[in-house]
Design a protein around this nucleic acid. Structure first.
Lengths: 127, 127
DNA sequence: GTACAACTTAGAGTGCACTCCAAGTCAATA
DNA sequence: TATTGACTTGGAGTGCACTCTAAGTTGTAC
């Protein structure tokens, strides 16, 4: 309705999700039903955007959809769900810290091998 | 044959892969055909282990199987494949650096929300 | 000798997260 | 008035990476 509302296409552009995925996430209850314009089209508001950006973050760092659904359910419980929401986020935090460690380890292995290959390549050159 | 050889079960235990997955990886050419004992059972050697640990690392940091297959093919090319192997690892390195950044950003968001929830919870307590 | 466990194979089945399709509605433009 | 394009829906299809099944073989323990 107002200037600030966004079409599904625009939200896709802003979030990196496809329009298919946006509809899919709504269908499976990962988002509250989005308000519709008079013609039936989805009309995304700023609060929707904030939530979408959060779940995009959670997804891209490996949280499975069922877990995000649980989180969404806890949002619907209002204040009653706050400590459970915190627990869920803390669990994800722990996983991310492990992930970060593994990532650093793998980066070290990669750099080692790259250096080795590079040395071999320049030896080949002069040999 | 020697004491150092390992059964598929042992390799599964050491690498975290299932025996199913180990056979699957061999079938799709992600590993060279593993030597067989007289009874036809797979007999893993130390060089196999090193390779398996590498591909486990690459998988767990998000490299798709087709890409690891390409890498395995380059291994079979011997020295001729070295610079292409380096290029592939450098590409993965770039992706991991982006991944690490996103992970840190998400950790920051998570900690922010956790702190917010925690504050709310203690307010609730005393209020 | 027979039960059992650990292995073998080809191929079928599963779970996840999308991704697409067909048919229809609506508003604007030629 | 007819076409275009962006949207709507329920439901089917896809791709990836396993994961499991069925049937068979082999070696050890009772």
């Amino acid at each position: 309705m107002t200037d600030k509302d966004l079409t599904i296409q625009q939200v896709a552009g802003l979030t990196g999700l496809s329009v298919h995925t946006l509809r899919y996430y709504e269908k499976i209850g990962l988002m509250e039903p989005i308000r519709r314009a008079k013609n039936g089209h989805r009309s995304y508001h700023m609060d929707d955007m904030e939530w979408i950006r959060l779940i995009v973050r959670l997804r891209s760092t490996g949280m499975p959809i069922v877990e995000m659904q649980r989180f969404a359910d806890m949002m619907r419980m209002g204040n009653a769900g706050i400590s459970r929401r915190r627990a869920l986020l803390e669990e994800h935090e722990q996983k991310l810290m492990l992930q970060a460690k593994e990532l650093e380890d793998t980066l070290a292995v990669l750099r080692d091998k790259i250096a080795y290959y590079r040395a071999w390549e320049s030896g080949e050159h002069s040999g």
